[in-house]
Design a protein around this nucleic acid. Structure first.
Lengths: 136, 136
DNA sequence: GTTGCAGCTGACGCATGGGTCAGGGTTTAC
DNA sequence: GTAAACCCTGACCCATGCGTCAGCTGCAAC
């Protein structure tokens, strides 16, 4: 599969795939003799996971860090294409811990903001005549 | 108070104050005859609120939208220096509603991510020998 | 008077996650 | 054989929330 098809299958663009590769989220794909990238279905699955994580708020660097363990996130579609590298395991684990902390803090802040905004909204509505019907 | 002192009092920089002004978060301050900006304590209080909201994840544009109603967020330190403008009230209200939705969605996603990461973390730890003591 | 910090405006820089050319080569279809 | 569609690399563009010059003026102290 060439890059255009792979990108379409994963719901993104060729540019994004090259970008992920450049940033270490995707392994350098096999090239044809003329230099064109070729992708497998496993690669596509990997890209889908990457996109999911990005949409959840992880950064590219985060995902690069746990790049070698992405297969854990997918019910065995993904092979562990990268070396299992025991060496980086503690780092990845650390990253998870830190990330969890950050997320918790984030949730707390958002909750606070939610509260604040809704109070503010209520006060606003109080001061404003409830706009009995329409306001155009 | 000139810009440097006001910025310091609010815990930020002159650059930020000019930026807020330019983007409509702060009213154009009174200038000295030679063009230097002067700020009051109320202005400083306003800046603090702006920073709080920014740190909670609102964007500059969001804050600009509710700019005329910021005094609602502070126990009467702030005068309603801007015209109460009934006209923009529905817009501000709409903005609150949309913002609340976005925040709720955000919290949901983060919660999902938290779950996902913690499962992933657990699996990782499972595969790795629990590193009985230290691993250096 | 003059040194030196403070302020002014305008413009470019940074990181993120890619989009969008530009200027080539390749592959596919007719 | 040739045009259309795709791929390659490298480089610049977007929005956000300011940081950081650059080049000039203001202000307070000595």
């Amino acid at each position: 599969m060439r890059i255009g098809d792979a990108a379409a299958a994963a719901g993104t663009t060729p540019r994004a795939l090259r970008f992920y590769e450049q940033r270490g989220l995707l392994p350098p794909p096999i090239r044809t003799r003329t230099g064109q990238r070729t992708y497998s279905n496993a690669d596509v699955a990997r890209v889908k996971i990457i996109r999911e994580l990005l949409s959840l708020g992880l950064t590219v660097d985060d995902i690069a860090t746990l790049s070698a363990h992405l297969h854990l996130l997918d019910g065995d579609t993904l092979p562990e294409h990268t070396v299992p590298d025991r060496i980086r395991l503690p780092e990845a684990s650390e990253m998870f811990r830190r990330r969890l902390e950050v997320i918790d803090e984030h949730i707390t802040r958002l909750t606070r903001l939610r509260q604040l905004l809704s109070v503010c909204h209520a006060q606003l509505a109080e001061k404003a005549p409830p706009a009995t019907a329409d306001t155009h």
